[in-house]
């Protein structure tokens, strides 16, 4: 259990460090890269801790507290990173489903046209197109949107996923 306690302690510490960083930084936008960097450092500390614990006879390996769950702990730590990031991005991104639910909740009952206007007002498509342009997945040439090499790679991955998953395009 000491390994899991270490994982939880380091993960919570990383989250707090990241939130403090976000509070203090003057940069706008998502600070996901900063979190990944902090998590990698914390993972290094965990790996070091596991090595020390396993090479010293400080714990009885047959007691519940001392069972060496080092590998499982590492997997849990790595998986917690995208879990946190998926919640963190919600601080700056809104989804169309959420917007629809909020539109209905605000008035109690909403018609189809009310929801279409709410989605149009939020301008999900233009904001996403701007994100794709800013991240250079997309470029505008002669008034036409064209995929860049990165965008083409993403499209190829999506086509491969469609072949594997066998599902139509979502959105």
């Amino acid at each position: 259990m000491i390994y899991l306690s270490l994982v939880l302690f380091l993960f919570i510490a990383t989250v707090f460090a990241h939130l403090t960083f976000c509070r203090r930084t003057s940069k706008s936008g998502l600070q996901a890269k900063a979190f990944v960097l902090m998590a990698m450092m914390a993972f290094g500390v965990y790996a070091g801790g596991v090595l020390i614990l396993q090479h010293t006879a400080a714990l009885d390996k047959h007691s519940l507290w001392g069972v060496p769950f080092g590998f499982t702990g590492a997997i849990i730590f790595i998986l917690l990173i995208p879990v946190y990031l998926s919640i963190y991005v919600l601080t700056q991104l809104s989804s169309p489903s959420k917007k629809i639910l909020m539109t209905i909740s605000l008035v109690g009952e909403a018609s189809y046209n009310d929801m279409v206007s709410a989605i149009q007002k939020e301008d999900f498509i233009t904001s996403r197109l701007n994100d794709l342009l800013a991240s250079q997945c997309l470029t505008s040439r002669n008034g036409r949107y064209v995929l860049t090499t990165d965008g083409q790679k993403i499209a190829a991955i999506l086509n491969l996923m469609q072949f594997i998953l066998g599902r139509k395009a979502g959105g």
């Binding site: 965008g151 999506l158 599902r167 395009a169």
Partner: peptide, 21 residues
């Protein structure tokens, strides 16, 4: 894959090929 607006946009633009859309 299933819900992202960005991913759907990439797929729709990809249909335009090298000329775009």
């Amino acid at each position: 894959y299933e819900t992202s607006v960005r991913m759907r946009l990439v797929r729709e633009i990809a249909k335009g090929g090298m000329e775009g859309i």
